[in-house]
């Protein structure tokens, strides 16, 4: 066999292998999803507005829905009852010793409010609000945070993606491999690493919140 032929046959073999690999990938398992099925199940909304349904609502109308369906847990003004999440306030507290993270003080995108309320709220009766109701409740939550100021401002699939959140620029992608590179490639001391014995400076038993106790601090 000439060198050329050998090469050609190898190429043919490679082609055949990759063709069968493609065939092997497609098992013909599962059936095609219809447009209607996808539309009904696809409830996700992105910051650019992709996924938002056609609809509209105002904070004024949202207040009525919120007071009947949401305030039991979240409080009349979104302040949160008991350990239920607070939804409003906390502006400017992210650097504080005790930050107060709410929609207004922390969330980077207003579309996330619509997406989350749509998929998970009201708690225990999820996916029950109409699209117009969702816009209205979202508008009310934004108004509780002074982001939407006009109670008659019409939130819709067109206006919602344009709402700028106060903490929109407060996030950055995971940088641990750079900002914490000191945790890599180190050879920790193994023998006689300190002269003095370590002193106990904090005790869980002094805090006394392990189950069996009644009270405890609030955590996220």
């Amino acid at each position: 066999m000439s060198r050329f032929l050998k090469r050609a046959s190898v190429a043919a073999l490679v082609l055949a292998a990759s063709a069968s690999a493609v065939l092997a990938q497609q098992l013909g398992v599962g059936r095609e999803a219809t447009v209607a099925e996808i539309k009904a199940w696809d409830i996700a909304v992105r910051p650019d507005g992709k996924g938002l349904p056609v609809g509209k609502g105002t904070a004024a109308r949202g207040e009525t829905i919120f007071q009947t369906q949401c305030a039991t847990c979240h409080g009349e003004f979104g302040e949160g009852k008991g350990r239920w999440p607070e939804l409003a306030g906390g502006h400017g507290t992210l650097k504080a010793d005790r930050p107060f993270k709410t929609i207004g003080s922390y969330w980077p995108y207003a579309t996330t409010v619509f997406d989350y309320v749509r998929r998970a709220m009201p708690f225990g009766n999820a996916q029950s609000l109409s699209d117009d109701d969702l816009y209205a409740v979202t508008a009310y939550l934004l108004s509780l945070n002074d982001i939407v100021k006009d109670p008659n401002f019409e939130l819709s699939e067109k206006t919602l993606p344009a709402v700028k959140m106060p903490n929109a620029d407060g996030f950055y992608d995971d940088d641990r491999e750079v900002s914490e590179k000191q945790f890599w490639a180190r050879k920790p001391c193994m023998k006689e690493c300190s002269k003095e014995a370590a002193a106990v400076i904090g005790r869980a038993m002094a805090v006394d919140v392990t189950p069996g106790q009644k009270a405890g601090p609030k955590v996220d």
Partner: peptide
């Protein structure tokens, strides 16, 4: 769903982001 960018859902914005002492937060720290 396959997309060309992340969705920034509740669980990757309001939750599961790491608030640092400078008031900014790490996201997508998987």
């Amino acid at each position: 769903e396959v997309g060309d960018q992340p969705w920034h859902t509740h669980e990757e914005t309001s939750k599961y982001t790491s608030l640092m002492s400078d008031g900014r937060a790490r996201r997508f720290s998987f």
